[in-house]
Amino acid sequence: MDFTNLIEGLAGFTVDGLTKGSIYALVALGYTLVYGVLRLINFAHSEVFMVGAWTVLGVYTAVGAHSGVGVWLAIGITLLAGLVAALVSAGTALVVERVAYRPLRNKNAPPLIVLITAIGCSLVLVEIFGHALRVFFGAPFGRSAVNIPTVVPTREVFTIGNFNMSNIDLIVILAAVGMMVALDLFVNKSRLGRGVRAVAQDPDTASLMGVNKNNVIMLVFIIGGVAAGLAALLHTMKYDFAKFDMGFLIGIKAFTAAVLGGIGNLRGALVGGLLLGVCEVYSSALISSNWEDVTAFVILVVVLMFRPTGILGESLGKARA
C-alpha cells in the first residue's frame, strides 16, 4: 500500500477519478432511465456508447481533422463530432428498442426473455463492428484498437501546488455535470419530464392521463443514447481510441455506477459514477492499476450489503427536487 504516493498526488488522482467517473455517469444515465421506465437492464447500451466512439472517428476522418488545426476549428470539429455521435448513438438505441424490445413488450414477454434479448443485441452489435468494419474499410479496422486523432491537444489550464489541471479533464467533468444537471431539471420541472416520471411510477395511470407510453419509452432511449454519444466523444478526447469491444467494460462499470447510486435514480447515476471513478484511481495509486476493476466490484458488493437499494436508493419516479 503506497500511501505516500496517493497523498502526494491526491489532487491529481481525484481529478483523474472524477474524469473517469464523469464518463461512467453519462453512460449510467442510459441504464438508469431505461430501467426506471421499463424495469429492463438494457445490456445493449454499452454498444450504443461504442457506436458513438466510431462515429467520432468517422466525423474526424470525414473532415480531415488533426492536432494541428487552430483553436476555433478544433472547437467546431469537436462540437460537430459530439452532435453527430449523439445523433447516431440515439438512433442506435432507438433501433434496438423498436426492432428488439417493443415487439416483445407488445406480446407481454416475461422480463427474462427481454433481458436475454438485450444481451443478444449487445453481442450482435459488438461482432458487427468487430467484423464488418474490416470488410468495408480494411486494416487497421478489425479486432484491434484504432487510434483516433487528437483534435484538442492537452494543455494546462491552471496549476495549484504540484497539481496541473488539464483542459481535457476540465471539459470532460464540466460537460458531464452540465448534462446531468440539465437532465435533472428536465425530468423534475418540465411537462414531458413529468410524463416520464408518471410512466415510471405507474404506467397504467399515466396512460389514463393521456401520456403515450411508447413515446415516453422512445424518449428515454433517445436521451440515454445522446448521453452515451456525448460520453463517447469525451472518452475519445481523453483516451484517443475506438475498439469493437470497448463498450463492454465501460458498460459494466456504468451499470455498476447506476446500481451503486440507486438504479432508476438520475442523481444516483452521477454520485455512483463519480464515486466509482475516484475509488478506482485511488486504488490503482495505492496498490496497482491491475486492481482497479477488483476494487470497483468490491465497493459495489460492500455498498449493496449495507444499502441494497444503492446510495440514493429511490426510483426515477420518486426522485424529485
Binding site: R194, R197, A198, Q201, A206, S315, G317, A319, R320
Partner: peptide
C-alpha cells in the same frame, strides 16, 4: 402518483 406532490399530480 405516490412520488409526486399534490400540485404535480394535478398537473398530470
Amino acid at each position: 402518483f405516490p412520488g409526486m406532490t399534490v400540485v404535480e399530480n394535478l398537473e398530470m
